[in-house]
C-alpha cells in the first residue's frame, strides 16, 4: 500500500512579542511532527485543545505557513504555497459551518464557486447538474439552492460545506473538528455521511477531533498529539485496547463506557495540572510535567517516536515497560 500523504518533521512556529521592547519568543504550535497516511484510509488526530492538531491540518492544506519540515503529497513534496491544482486535490471541512460560508451569498453561488475557480464545468447546465448530483449525495435537495446560509441549521450547513469541498473531487480531505459544533444526534448522521462518502469517492481523510470515541469508530490509524508533538501513533483498534504512552492512557481512561457495570469498574486517570504553554515549551519530554512515570532522564531529553510493536509508535522512554499495565 502506498502513502498518499507523508508528513516529515513538520513544524509550525509563530513569533510572539508581548511588548515591543521584549525579546521575540517563539510559539511552537507544531514541533517536529511526522506521520503518514495510506491511500483510502482515515487517519485520526486527537489531542486536547491547544495541542496543535488543527494547525497540522491547516499547514498541510496550506492555510498556515510551514516553518519547517516537508509534506509529501502523492510522492511529491508540497511547495511553499500550494498551487491551485493542489488546492483542488486537497480540501478541508471546518469546525464551524456557519462561519465558513459567506453570509451574503446564496447556496447556489457558494456551491458554484469551486467549480468556477477550478473551471470544472463548461456550461451553466453542467454546473447545475454537478451541484445537484453532489447535493443529493450529501442528502440535500434542489430547494436549498436559492436560500442563504442563515436559513439553515448547523447540520444542514455542514452538509453544504461537505458538498462544497467534494465538488472539486479531491483525493485528500481534512476534517477539522467537523462535527464538534453539532448536536449529538446530528453528529452521528454526519459521521455516517462522511463514512459513506469516503468509500464512494475513495477519499483519504485526516480526521481531527478531540473525541476519541468518534475517532475509534471512523479512523484506521490514530495519532495522539500533546503540546505540538505526536506522542503515539497506532492502528485505531490497538490504540483503544492498549495505549502505550501515559498521556494516551489517561485520555482513554476518561471515555465513558455505555455498559454501567464496566463504567463502575473503570479506573479514571486524572492528570494533574495544565498543559504547559507552547511558548518556549520545556526542553525534554513535553508530557514531563504531568506524567506519573516521569524520571529525571525525561526532563532532559525529548523521546523520539519509536516503533514499540509492529505499526505501533510511541514517544516515551518507558513505553516498553508500560506494555500490559492497565493502571495509571
Amino acid at each position: 500500500m502506498s502513502d498518499l500523504l507523508r508528513v516529515e518533521d513538520l513544524s509550525v512556529h509563530f513569533p510572539v512579542r508581548r511588548n515591543p521592547f521584549g525579546k521575540p519568543r517563539v510559539l511552537k504550535a507544531v514541533d517536529h511532527v511526522s506521520f503518514s497516511i495510506e491511500r483510502n484510509t482515515v487517519f485520526g488526530l486527537c489531542g486536547e485543545s491547544g495541542s496543535g492538531k488543527t494547525t497540522v491540518g491547516k499547514a498541510i492544506i496550506g492555510l498556515k505557513r510551514r516553518t519547517g519540515g516537508t509534506v509529501f503529497f502523492d510522492g511529491e513534496p508540497l511547495p511553499e504555497r500550494n498551487s491551485r491544482e493542489l488546492r483542488k486535490r486537497m480540501q478541508i471541512i471546518f469546525q464551524d459551518p456557519v462561519g465558513s460560508l459567506n453570509p451574503q451569498k446564496t447556496i447556489r453561488e457558494l456551491l458554484a464557486e469551486p467549480l468556477r475557480i477550478h473551471r470544472l464545468a463548461f456550461s451553466r447546465d453542467e454546473e447545475e447538474e454537478r451541484i445537484l448530483s453532489m447535493l443529493e449525495k450529501v442528502g440535500l435537495g434542489k430547494e436549498v439552492l436559492c436560500r442563504h446560509p442563515h436559513e439553515f441549521s448547523g447540520g444542514q450547513l455542514q452538509r453544504i460545506c461537505i458538498c462544497r469541498s467534494l465538488l472539486t473531487e479531491p483525493e485528500f480531505l481534512v476534517c477539522d473538528e467537523s462535527i464538534a459544533s453539532l448536536d449529538v444526534s446530528i453528529q452521528a448522521q454526519i459521521i455516517n455521511l462522511l463514512r459513506s462518502l469516503k468509500r464512494e469517492f475513495n477519499l483519504t481523510v485526516l480526521f481531527i477531533s478531540h473525541n476519541f470515541a468518534v475517532l475509534g469508530y471512523l479512523a484506521d490509524r490514530i495519532g495522539v498529539m500533546y503540546l505540538g508533538s505526536i506522542v503515539e501513533v497506532a492502528p485505531a483498534s490497538e490504540l483503544s485496547s492498549e495505549p502505550l504512552h501515559p498521556y494516551s492512557k489517561a485520555l482513554l481512561s476518561v471515555i465513558p463506557q455505555p455498559d454501567p457495570r464496566l463504567e463502575r469498574s473503570r479506573k479514571k486517570i486524572v492528570l494533574e495540572g495544565e498543559m504547559p504553554s507552547p511558548i518556549d515549551p520545556p526542553e525534554g519530554c513535553p508530557f514531563f510535567s504531568r506524567c506519573p512515570f516521569a524520571e529525571e532522564h525525561c526532563r532532559q531529553e525529548k523521546p523520539a517516536l519509536e516503533e514499540v510493536s509492529s505499526g505501533h509508535y510511541a514517544a516515551c522512554f518507558k513505553a516498553k515497560e508500560l506494555i500490559g499495565r492497565k493502571d495509571g
Binding site: 496550506g62 483542488k88 478541508i92 471546518f94 465558513s100 459567506n102 475557480i117
Partner: peptide, 12 residues
C-alpha cells in the same frame, strides 16, 4: 472563517 474557507477551495 469564510475567508479561510475560500482560500481552501482555491480562490485567489
Amino acid at each position: 472563517l469564510y475567508v479561510e474557507s475560500e482560500k481552501a477551495i482555491g480562490a485567489g
